[in-house]
Amino acid sequence: MAEVGIRDVAALAGVSITTVSNALNRPELVSRAAAQRVEEAARTLGYVPNIAARQLRAGRSTVIGMAVINITNPFFSEVVLGAEESAEAAGYSVFVGNSYDSQDRETRYLDLFDRQRLDGVLLAPLSDDLSALDRFAKRDVPVVLVDRVDPTGRHPSVSLDDVHGGRLATEHVLAGGARRVAFVGGPTGVAQMRDRLAGCRAAVEASDASLQVIETSTLSVRLGREIGMRIAAMPPGERPDAVVGGNDEVALGILHSLVSEGIDVPGEVAIIGYDDIDFAAASIVPLTSIRQPSHEMGRRAAQLLLDAMASGEPASSVRFEPALMPRQSTRPA
């Protein structure tokens, strides 16, 4: 079946194509009777305006693109919800792309945002290589990074001090008596993981404890369970007495495996996560975590982008501070 077009609406309404266009886009230019005929004809034919073509002619889309590392991670889900809150208040929609830990997928989404001529871009990037964003700068399309600082300083960002967060987490388990600390996270190609590990390492080096690094290719509950089983199988004298998780999901997986194997958490192994997702407090042993204000980070990132789109001026970066949320999975100092 052929797609109904503006010519069909004009023919049925008995008006010109220009009248139909004005009735749909600038109704103040046509008479009330003509507007009613156009509306009735469009409804009869089931006509749907070609939004993409209209946006192309207008040179704007009222849509911003947003690509995140992994939307199945509740942290990024909250970031997206925060961004949508700001965008919708300003009359914009958010086109969300899930990179799913794949650089190729991230690149494809950026290509799509460019082809669709979206008005702005929010990006939680996988790597430090941000050259794929150059195309947007050439068209004066603003970009704001989320949960990452641009090492070149070209792109504004909304981020968290992850070095401080990693150190805060590790100092907490050390204060509870831990002396064999394991950091579980990765990949270290992701700047957030490098920073959290750097903070963890700095805290351990300032103490008499030891550090074991278990690098992962991703962060998930399933992978955490596998690592937890490996930790549980270690002799008690060699087993870490504290685990610092790169995020809450991997920490929760480790926690559940240890508990299922009869290992006392936190008596034998203290566990702390990162992000403070909703599931952390609801775990079988409530999980201590480093809190990121995920919803607020998304909201502020979108607001910075919208301000840059409206003013044409580059936005200023925002950096949040992490907060310790102590619960029963770690020992008190």
Rank of each mutant, 00 (worst) to 15 (best):
I6L: 14
R7N: 13
V9R: 09
V9A: 01
A11Q: 14
L12G: 03
L12R: 15
L12V: 05
G14S: 04
V15C: 01
S16N: 07
T18D: 09
S21R: 04
L24C: 02
R26C: 01
Q36F: 04
Y47Q: 12
R54T: 15
G59S: 00
R60E: 08
V63W: 02
G65S: 07
M66L: 14
A67W: 00
V68Q: 06
I69G: 11
N73H: 12
P74W: 03
P74I: 03
F76P: 01
V80E: 14
V80Y: 12
E85P: 05
E88Q: 15
A89D: 15
Y92I: 01
V94Q: 00
F95A: 04
V96W: 10
S102G: 02
S102K: 01
D104V: 05
T107D: 15
R108G: 05
R108S: 09
R108L: 14
L110Q: 02
L112Q: 04
D114W: 08
V121F: 10
L122T: 11
D128S: 12
L133R: 10
V144Q: 00
V149N: 06
D150Q: 05
P151D: 14
T152P: 07
T152C: 01
G153E: 10
P156D: 02
S157C: 11
S157I: 13
V158E: 10
D162Q: 08
H164Y: 10
T170P: 13
T170K: 07
V173H: 03
A175W: 01
R179L: 09
R179G: 06
R179H: 07
G185Y: 02
T188R: 13
R194D: 06
R196S: 06
L197Q: 04
G199P: 06
C200K: 07
E205F: 02
E215S: 06
R225S: 13
E226V: 07
I227M: 04
G228M: 10
M229G: 12
A233C: 09
R239S: 07
D241V: 12
V244L: 09
G245F: 01
D248S: 07
E249F: 10
V250P: 11
V250M: 11
G253D: 06
I254L: 01
L258C: 06
E261D: 04
V265K: 01
P266T: 15
G267R: 13
G267W: 04
A270P: 15
A270M: 12
G273I: 12
Y274L: 02
D276Y: 04
D278F: 02
I284C: 15
P286Y: 06
S289G: 04
I290Q: 00
P293G: 04
G298A: 10
A302I: 07
E313H: 10
E313R: 13
P314S: 12
A315K: 03
S316G: 10
V318W: 08
M325G: 05
Q328I: 08
Q328Y: 11
R331T: 08
